[in-house]
Design a protein around this nucleic acid. Structure first.
Lengths: 354, 354
DNA sequence: GTTAGCACTCAACGCAAACGAGTGCTAACA
DNA sequence: TGTTAGCACTCGTTTGCGTTGAGTGCTAAC
């Protein structure tokens, strides 16, 4: 038996109702709905069919019915309509970023907070993955260590510490930084091994320092190397599905584990759009959650934002907010042309656009 | 009426019991305690006195008694004995840091997590405040912006973005960084205005760039400029005082607000040790919490760690863990001598210590 | 000053009755 | 043949009420 148009409509009504009330939905509630034009008895028959088909479940005989995982899947794939965000909200959103000029990480923090506020769910975000490196600079830290600051083609930067052999002067580090930058700038990240090989040729056999540089660069380029931004975790507690404290605690402590979240997001990085519902999420305590992710693009890099809420999530609304956020972020984070790459020589490179 | 020795002992027993059970304590429970040697009736009389004195309260007639804010205050100030951490735990703690060499912020993240795990409460931490600047380095970011990386005397570093006038080359930025570093290194942070004045003299009137540098430095030196580390917020949910979801949500969302936490900690920065109990905390949702803070020292800078739990907190245990953490951190974070300061010329400066 | 004894209080527990939201089934209707 | 009114039935929730028991305060005796 397939779902005819009427069953679709009824299922949609049930899901819509459940999403807003979080209470099992009865046949009368649906039959009274505007434009339904069917008696509760008819609805009951249809609901019974829908239950048999696995779209609904009843907690017990005399309660109404609750959408199953399968219903949400269908809802997201076929029923839900995503409207674009109203102009007023959209312009509010874009105004957050308009005046901002600062560190990528700070922008992401704001964006994550805004996403959580606008959706009233928890939101998570990872920075765009590095597609190319615009500049590497070594900054002396102590006598035996230096800070490696890497500016990515996306306009972000990453820091790490490396050990330097005794006797290396700041000027030496600067010269080395320039040499490495010259080699590396503008090349794709996949060419890194080749680039480093070339670079090593010109380093006069400073093997130890080279190893350190290589290792640090690799570490920095790992997709989950830098932090995940999380905002609004406490909001989850206001949804009745987490009135069980044990459950809530579990979920919140998963949200505190950066690497689990990082994995969850990097897995979906590059996917235009994805929705994982309940049982599709294997992470501790997330079985009653849904995760909606949308990837955003900055220069050549792709990052991902996500919203975590109960399976009974306002999918349509969430997705429209995220689409808007994606657009606003791409505009706010666009790396200015002719960025930190090489020095004077490259003046004419960034000119094609404009 | 003052508290005689017996009342002290009884109050201590009540608090100890309540801290572990979270249930109102009855007179029989106390009289049965090892070494008490008093009947429940006597205890009852004493408890009645203690209630009148404001140290105890009873939720209702036929329940036991619960320590009041005043009791905790007394407990912390006079009754509690802080034992030092057992050797096994101490060495476990120090082993976390032993192999670590990396960014200050990463070390703080680990430390915060460890503190939360060892105490089973939520922990927060801010980086040591900057007492001096060891090095400033400007890294080109885009054509019109640069990253200012400041290495502090404490071995931490801070980044911010500043606008640069068109036509400034990377080499120019490097020269400028060296000039500024030369001026600023080794001087106390309080001398910053004077240092900057000197520096401006030698800058050939690049007013705009100077303004930007000045502003960025000021921003970076603000005590709460950099992030607060928080760990184990979810642990709070396992304590019965937060079984009220509304309360829990409130508290957790305060813990998500970085600047409130930053304020809370910076206020106490430099205090060897402080305990704020319940009503002494005015922050949203923290009226049933206690906050214990301990400051730690790294080089010339002072940072603060804190533990947040219910007023019914295991104060003794928490403080001994924090004291141990303070010691371990001071060792792990000690800035190596002869750090990033100036270049070759300063070789002989760091020699007096050894 | 301490303690045994006792009446009293009151939240918590258990249980039964009443309630009502919802179902499934049947029979009548268009 | 699909729709609907009607009705018996189910079962979680609410309400009311006695029982229990942990704990108190008070009094009188030691």
């Amino acid at each position: 038996m397939d779902l005819d148009e009427r069953k679709f409509r009824i299922l949609q009504a049930i899901i819509d109702d459940y999403i807003t009330t979080a209470m099992p939905v009865g046949s009368r509630t649906i039959s009274r709905k505007q434009g339904m034009g069917l008696s509760s008895a008819t609805i009951r028959n249809e609901m019974s069919d829908l239950e048999e088909l696995g779209y609904l479940a009843s907690p017990h005989t005399s309660a109404g019915r609750v959408p199953s995982y399968r219903a949400y899947r269908l809802y997201v794939d076929q029923i839900m309509r995503v409207s674009s965000l109203p102009q007023t909200e959209y312009s509010l959103l874009s105004s957050i970023f308009s005046s901002r000029m600062g560190l990528m990480e700070d922008v992401l923090t704001s964006a994550t907070q805004a996403l959580s506020e606008l959706t009233d769910y928890t939101s998570v975000m990872i920075a765009p993955q590095t597609s190319s490196i615009a500049r590497v600079q070594l900054v002396p830290l102590t006598e035996t260590t230096a800070l490696m600051v890497t500016v990515t083609g996306e306009g972000a930067h990453k820091d790490s510490v490396l050990r330097i052999p005794p006797g290396v002067t700041p000027d030496h580090l600067y010269a080395l930084s320039n040499l490495l930058t010259e080699k590396i700038a503008g090349r794709d990240i996949t060419q890194l091994p080749a680039v480093m090989q070339e670079f090593y040729q010109e380093m006069n056999g400073q093997r130890e320092l080279f190893e350190q540089l290589m290792e640090s660069l690799k570490k920095q380029m790992q997709p989950d190397a830098h932090s995940v931004h999380v905002a609004g975790a406490a909001r989850l507690l206001s949804h009745p599905e987490y009135s069980d404290l044990e459950k809530a605690r579990n979920l919140l402590s998963t949200l505190e584990t950066q690497d689990k979240l990082a994995k969850l997001l990097t897995q979906r990085n590059g996917l235009e759009f994805s929705v994982a519902i309940g049982p599709e999420l294997s992470e501790e305590g997330m079985q009653d959650c849904s995760l909606v992710t949308v990837s955003y693009r900055v220069g050549g890099g792709v990052g991902t934002m996500g919203v975590i809420g109960p399976t009974r999530m306002q999918y349509g609304r969430v997705i429209s907010v995220m689409e808007a956020m994606k657009k606003v972020m791409s505009e706010a984070l666009i790396p200015q042309k002719g960025s930190a790459g090489q020095r004077k020589e490259e003046k004419d490179e960034g000119k094609q656009k404009e």
